[in-house]
Amino acid sequence: MIYTIAATMVLIAMLLTLYRLFAGPTLYDRVLAVNLFGTHTVVFIGILGFLTGRPDFLDIALLYALINFVATVAILKFFRYRAIGDVGRTPIRKRKSASRRIKLPKIRKRAKDSGGK
């Protein structure tokens, strides 16, 4: 009974995280949602093992936790350097990747007298 309630709550949380994964405006929202979805999946596999009375799925949960962390770091590394493997040869200043072309937001210059609202 208690496991059914917990599994339902985690399943609803997974669906909400999937919404953020598909609707996230930036790339980093999606990476965050993927990471969170992986953690929810690990928890859900554990609860499911106790719910069915056979907690033997925990090895799968452990494997999923390992892969989840490596996948998050690999995605972030790929979108920063545009390569997974050997990124140490060419420094980031010399390559024309998309992440370097994003400029910092400019400061809006406001006059001093128009500051008060």
């Binding site: 930036t26 980093y28 990476v31 965050l32 990471n35 953690t39 690990v42 554990g46 925990l58 090895d59 949960a61 452990l62 936790a65 390992l66 989840n68 962390f69 998050t72 770091v73 972030l76 979108f79 920063r80 992440s99 994003i102 400029k103 910092l104 937001p105």
Partner: peptide, 30 residues
């Protein structure tokens, strides 16, 4: 097994969150 999974997630969860935040900050998201 539960303790091993919990310890691993306890270490890697904040690490990956920090990596995501750092990558977003470097890429110019404010």
């Amino acid at each position: 097994k539960l303790a091993i999974i919990g310890a691993f997630l306890f270490l890697t969860g904040p690490t990956s969150t920090h990596a995501t935040a750092n990558a977003a900050l470097v890429s110019g998201l404010r």
